[in-house]
């Protein structure tokens, strides 16, 4: 792999990422322009005169033509309520929320810790259990452990996230509470800075909700990927060396099986945000997902664009990192 090819690879990938993010912003902007009712109308008191509405529109910079507004997003827009807008400010600004009367960046920063806590915990459970269950199931294909994990996998693959969440609440919170065991709270979020114990206690059910379906999928992906690799010649070589099962499966097979797992893992990781929307809704966690739902239904365009941008960036970066790893691995071949 020449240094030139490496720079070439990086350059095309980075350009593509940038184009993707810009395209996402443009499409979302146009979409919200078309779909949402004029925010000035919403902000004005009922029966307000046309003049009042116009002056509100001016105050929020939405009297300008749409392309100017869109352009302002990428460079520097007008100040709204004393908040600069546009990416080219420092710190970059994502605009101003009509409904909440606050800068979008501030809103996002406030909600991110909850979503991050949710996603990070689920991710940990996801990775650990998928690998463990997947490899162990592959080791004895068709054995009892394989059958049990396969049943587990089918079950949670067939339950939408919100159903899993609701059932967990019904059985683990409600029924256990009736039985006198009140450990799991049904909803809410406690920042880790306030009380780490409470933080974890409140997040256990959401973590499970988010992770179970992912484990169900990934356990199977890893299993079949390992099974495929197990029939490869180089695993036979490992056996011919007299290596132990543990070394063969966790050393040789897993590392050989990693490519498809990584690729899918990258997409799935980004999809956790999608799952977070639902999980936050079910468990009343005040994170990015809930903010998205309330903003979209109330027509708060700057917030919707900001969140879409945020998740597109997360998606693009995770897939990029995964691609980098696969690329580095393929360069060895």
């Amino acid at each position: 792999m020449t240094a030139f090819a490496r720079t070439q690879f990086l350059r095309t990938r980075l350009t593509r990422m940038l184009i993707t993010v810009i395209a996402v912003v443009i499409v979302t902007f146009v979409l919200t322009q078309v779909a949402f009712t004029n925010p000035a109308q919403n902000l004005a008191p009922p029966n307000a005169s046309g003049e009042t509405i116009d002056s509100i529109a001016r105050a929020y910079g939405i009297d300008r033509p749409w392309y100017e507004q869109l352009f302002g997003y990428f460079v520097k827009g007008p100040d709204i309520q004393g908040t600069p807008t546009g990416f080219l400010n420092w710190p970059p600004s994502l605009g101003y929320s009509y409904q909440q009367q606050r800068p979008v960046t501030e809103l996002l920063l406030e909600k991110i810790p909850a979503t991050l806590s949710l996603a990070a915990g689920a991710l940990m459970l996801w990775v650990i259990f998928s690998v463990l269950l997947g490899v162990l199931a592959a080791r004895r294909q068709g054995g009892w452990f394989d059958k049990v994990t396969s049943g587990f996998s089918y079950t949670f693959l067939s339950l939408p996230t919100f159903v899993t969440g609701m059932l967990l609440i019904y059985f683990l919170f409600y029924q256990l509470s009736l039985a006198g065991f009140r450990f799991f709270p049904s909803s809410g979020y406690v920042p880790i800075t306030e009380s780490p114990g409470e933080w974890a206690r409140h997040l256990i059910l959401p973590w499970l909700t988010l992770a179970l379906a992912e484990i169900a999928i990934f356990q199977r992906v890893i299993r079949s990927s390992v099974l495929e690799v197990v029939n490869q010649d180089y695993i036979r070589t490992a056996k011919a060396k007299g290596l132990s099962d543990r070394r063969i499966y966790f050393g040789h097979a897993l590392s050989g099986a990693l490519n498809p797992v990584l690729t899918l893992g990258g997409i799935e990781l980004a999809a956790i945000i999608g799952g977070a929307v639902i999980t936050e809704q079910v468990f009343g966690i005040d994170g990015i997902g809930r903010l998205a739902v309330t903003s979209a239904s109330s027509g708060d365009a700057p917030v919707v664009i900001g969140i879409t941008l945020f998740s597109a960036v997360v998606f693009v970066i995770t897939t990029f990192v995964v691609d980098l790893i696969t690329y580095a691995r393929s360069a060895r071949q």
Binding site: D233, Y234, R236, T237, A238, A240, H252, S255, R332, Q333
Partner: peptide, 17 residues
């Protein structure tokens, strides 16, 4: 006690080690 040499060394060596 028994060593093996297989047909295709490309597929018989681990690609990532």
């Amino acid at each position: 006690e028994i060593g093996f040499v297989f047909q295709d060394p490309q597929s018989n060596l681990h690609p990532f080690k």
